[in-house]
C-alpha cells in the first residue's frame, strides 16, 4: 500500500515540473526570438506577410492567452507544423523516434555490459594496474567529445578497413521489417527475419559504441566508488572468510548491494544518451530525433527543434520516475518519504 501511495505521490509531483517545462519552452519559442512570425515566415518574407502571420499566430494577444493556447495544443499532442516538411511535427517525430530509442537502448546495453564489470574489477583490484587502467579509461571517456570518437571510428572501421557500415540503419536494398515497434532489431525478431536482424545489429555497432563511450566512463566511476564502499563492510569479509570464491562474493554479494546508486545513474545515463543523440546521430546519419533536430537547425525549422526538446525532456522525467519507483520496490528498507 505504501508503495502505491509513493508511486501516486511521485506522479502527482511530476505535474508541476511538466508545467514548468511547458512554461520554459513557451518562453524560449515565443519570447527569445525577436519575432516568431518573422522566424516562421523565413528570412525573405516581406512586412505584409509577416503582419498577417502575426495576426494568424495570435501574437497580438496577451502573453498568458498565448501560453494557454500553447499549453492546450501541447496537451493534444500538437507540437506545431514544421516550417520545412510542412506537416505536423508530431508526424515527423513518430517516424524518427523509434530509431533514437533503439540506438539509446543499444548503447545502454553496451554501457552496462562493459561499464559495470570494469567498475567491479577496478574496485576489487584497487590501486593495481587494472584499476589504474580502468580509471584512466573512464577519465578519457568522460572528457572525450563523442562526436569526435564517432568520426574516428568511421574513419577506421568504415573508410580504412571497410568492415562496418558507416551510415543508416540497414544495408541498402534491404526492406525494413514490418513496423511493430519501429525498432528494426525488435521488429525483425518478432517477424523472424534474421537477415534484417543481422544487418540492423551491424549498423548499430558504431553509433552504439560512440554513444556508450561517455556513459561507460560515468558508470565505471560510479560502480567503482559504490563497490569500494560495500567491499569495506563486514559481511563481505565474512563471505570471503567462509571461502566464497572471488567472483561469487564480488558479483553475488557486493554488486547486489552496491547496485542502488548505479541504478540511479543508469537513469541519468539514459537521458544523457538521448541528449547526446543530437551529436552522434548526425555523425552516422542515423535517421532519429537527433538528426532530425540538427537538420531542423540547418533549415531554421524552429518548431521542430522545440518539439524534440520537449519530447526528450518529458521522456527523461518519465524514465527517472520509473527508476525511482523501481528503487523503492527493489529495496523495501527505504522509507517512502
Amino acid at each position: 500500500m505504501d508503495a502505491l501511495r509513493y508511486t501516486l505521490k511521485r506522479i502527482l509531483l511530476m505535474i508541476p515540473i511538466l508545467i514548468g517545462i511547458s512554461m520554459l519552452t513557451f518562453f524560449i519559442s515565443n519570447t527569445i526570438p525577436g519575432d516568431p512570425a518573422r522566424l516562421a515566415a523565413g528570412p525573405y518574407a516581406d512586412a505584409k506577410v509577416i503582419e498577417e502571420l502575426q495576426e494568424k499566430m495570435g501574437l497580438n494577444d496577451p502573453v498568458y492567452i498565448q501560453y494557454f493556447r500553447y499549453m492546450k495544443s501541447l496537451l493534444q499532442g500538437d507540437l506545431g507544423n514544421s516550417n520545412y516538411s510542412h506537416q505536423p511535427v508530431m508526424e515527423d517525430i513518430k517516424q524518427y523516434f523509434p530509431a533514437t530509442l533503439e540506438l539509446t537502448f543499444f548503447s545502454m546495453f553496451i554501457t552496462i555490459l562493459i561499464g559495470i564489470p570494469l567498475g567491479v574489477i577496478s574496485a576489487s583490484k584497487k590501486d593495481k594496474i587494472a584499476d589504474q587502467f580502468a580509471r584512466v579509461l573512464a577519465l578519457i571517456g568522460v572528457a572525450m567529445p563523442a562526436f569526435w570518437l564517432g568520426i574516428i571510428l568511421l574513419l577506421f572501421f568504415y573508410l580504412k578497413l571497410g568492415v562496418l557500415p558507416g551510415s543508416g540503419r540497414l544495408d541498402t536494398g534491404l526492406a525494413p521489417p514490418e513496423t511493430i515497434t519501429g525498432m528494426y532489431t525488435i521488429d525483425a525478431i518478432l517477424t523472424g527475419n534474421w537477415t534484417v536482424f543481422t544487418s540492423a545489429v551491424i549498423h548499430l555497432i558504431l553509433p552504439g559504441i560512440t554513444q556508450a563511450a561517455v556513459t561507460i566512463g560515468m558508470i565505471t566511476r560510479m560502480t567503482r566508488s559504490s563497490m569500494l564502499e560495500v567491499l569495506r563492510s563486514d559481511y563481505i569479509r565474512t563471505a570471503f572468510a567462509k571461502g566464497g570464491s572471488e567472483r561469487r562474493v564480488l558479483y553475488g554479494h557486493a554488486l547486489r548491494n552496491g547496485m542502488m546508486p548505479i541504478m540511479t545513474l543508469l537513469g541519468m545515463t539514459f537521458g544523457h544518451s538521448l541528449g547526446g543523440s543530437v551529436l552522434v546521430e548526425s555523425v552516422f546519419s542515423w535517421p532519429g530525433l537527433g538528426k532530425y533536430a540538427v537538420n531542423a537547425i540547418t533549415y531554421l525549422d524552429f518548431p521542430a527543434v522545440m518539439a524534440v526538446t520537449i519530447l526528450i525532456a518529458v521522456l527523461f522525467i518519465i524514465v527517472n520516475l520509473v527508476i525511482d519507483i523501481l528503487y523503492q520496490v527493489v529495496d523495501p528498507r527505504l522509507n517512502y518519504e
Partner: peptide
C-alpha cells in the same frame, strides 16, 4: 535540470 545534456542550450541557441 530536467533537460538532459545539451538539449536545452541547443534550443535556446537555435532561438537566438
Amino acid at each position: 535540470l530536467s533537460f538532459p545534456g545539451i538539449i536545452l542550450s541547443m534550443s535556446i541557441a537555435a532561438a537566438l
